[in-house]
Design a protein around this nucleic acid. Sequence first.
DNA 1: CTTATCCATTTTTAGACAGCATGTC
DNA 2: CTAAAAATGGATAAG
Length: 684
Amino acid sequence: MILMLEMAFRNAGKTFYLVPLRALASEKYEEFKLFHGARKPNGGSLKVSISTGDYDSTASNLENKDIVIATYEKCDSIIRHRPSWLSAVSLIVLDEIHLLDSVDRGPTLEMLTTWLKRVASGVQFLALSATVENCNELAGWLDATPVVSEWRPIPLREGVFLDYVITYPNGKMIEVTREFGEPYLDLASQALREGGQALFFTETRRSAVALSKKLTPVTWLSLSSAERRKLAEISSAINLSAERTKLSEVLSSVIARGSAFHHAGLHHDHRATVERFFKKGLIKVITATPTLAAGVNLPARIVAITSLRRYDHVLGSEQIPVMEYKQMAGRAGRPKYDKVGDAIVFASSASDAQYLMETYINSSPEPIVSKLGSAQSIAAHVLATTVGGMAHDKKNLHEVFSSTFLAKQRGYTNLKLKVEAALDYLAKEGALKWTNGGFVETSLGRRIAELYIDPSTAFHFRDCMNMKPREYTPISILHMITSSSDITPMLYTRSSDMALVEDFISEHEGELYLTSKAENRLIQDEVKTLIALWFWIEERSEEEISEMTGAQQGDLYRLDESAVWLIYSSSELAVFFGHKELLPQLRELEMRVRHGVGRELLELVGLKGIGRIRARNLYENGFTSIQALRRGDVSALARVPSIGTKLAMKIKETVGGKLKAKDLKAARRDEVQTTLEDFNREAE
DNA sequence: CTTATCCATTTTTAGACAGCATGTC
DNA sequence: CTAAAAATGGATAAG
């Protein structure tokens, strides 16, 4: 921050702060925002901006900014648009550089860094990480000087818990008081007695939820009556801020007792609530999946790691890497509050304890290894390199790829073959064309790179548009989307879902793409993901969808987000593929998915109204139930946290009812009141 | 006759980046 | 070096 601010004040150039998560970007942005508008010596004012997929997106907005905070992918995308100010960049901070090791996102970071090194010559790089073992090697690649510091604001102790005794690497042992007779409860209790908070990491979402319930007796006893009152309010607010589901009800009930769970199935507002009130000290214990290991900064007095295994659909049950363990352990110790942070792992036997001590506590994280070689698509990076203007002939292209971290670690021979193959593939499919002496991207290729989709996804769209199923319906379009490699999260078909999926397939056989011979195609997963999206645009309740498919609120929102992006992309590409006639269908479907607004609702409100009243607000404000809307159900409206005047007017017109603002307020008040009472009673 | 308990078997399993343009609070 | 925990379903005991 000091370096960036110094450069900004000196007008020494534009600086970037790059992070792997949107949440981290907004956290960092909040810190930098304090300096936004500060007067510079030359009279101008300092300008700070954030750029991630869910914030502003046009590169021109960044032209006169001094400090830009962005995700890696966003920065990558910006480069592809070749903004004029790129040469004005003077410093790039790469936070959490160890992400280079990640299979799905590491290659993007690696290519991004490689380009930046070339494009912006003379740019200073500052790469940061708490868990890099081979930092000399990494520094060598970046042409940087390694700076190692063991300093932590709060010292960290790592220990193993076995039979109520915590053993530390130096042989020191501490006994934990038996109070509840359950290790997890007693450990949490110890943290709370010292006025601290505890963070438990679990292997699965389900066990995070189960453990947070189990911990409520401990947290409840530690609460003052003032805290209990505040928590009751927070707890009832949970059920008002988003659609109610079984999961949100459980969250609401544990929060009332000072405990909470945190995982990616939660609604993002609920995640934010949990983070916020843990930071404020009201929520005493969080049980979390790895969401919090790399996510926002949420330190705790004690970090308890309940499992060091993880199940993988391909590999089965696996030990997690030391790097991940260190990331979790590093969350222990709150600056300003704790004297020391404790990270505790649980052992099942004496030999297990010894194993954990050797393998995790006394081990360094694994060295960072480039994953560019296993990138699912080198083609995407070759195309982006071309579109970004970094290479228009083989010589330059090989220069770029031979300066990657992979080439440094493993040599360039293998990668060279892959790059050549990617070039041929892109040319064959029409994203690039040969020129004398080199190659250049086609307008299609440029659009693919700008839309930020994998080239294979684009070609898949083309094939799907050329070979339509017997009956071409919205379901066909959704299937095209869910069978592309860019859809996330792809839902997994459990054995209990088989009936649902098979029924759907036989019912919609004529509308689906079932003939493709691509190997390893997981038709069932594609269809199951399609079903979740279909239910979503049919306005089924979030609870119903998660009941039927197992996809929870958070999953649904992310699925929706990626589906919107892909449908938009397919409509942009339809023109290139000579399928202009599909545009109306694609546009309509995009709108239905984007806003979660069903056909019936579109008809009710009138399609023209969508332009004026943003349908997304209908959705976000809780109008997912058409039935409720039709009968003007006041109690459904009570779940709406805020209704715009225009929107309320429109609803009034539409339902023809007599809803008034004060009815809404009264209804909402009642609901808040009853939930509050319920929780207090239950808690007692 | 209903409910509780026990036991063996079956089922399930983390996370999250990206486009673009405009209305709403 | 190693999978573990919850859900399910059926049988039997208790109320």
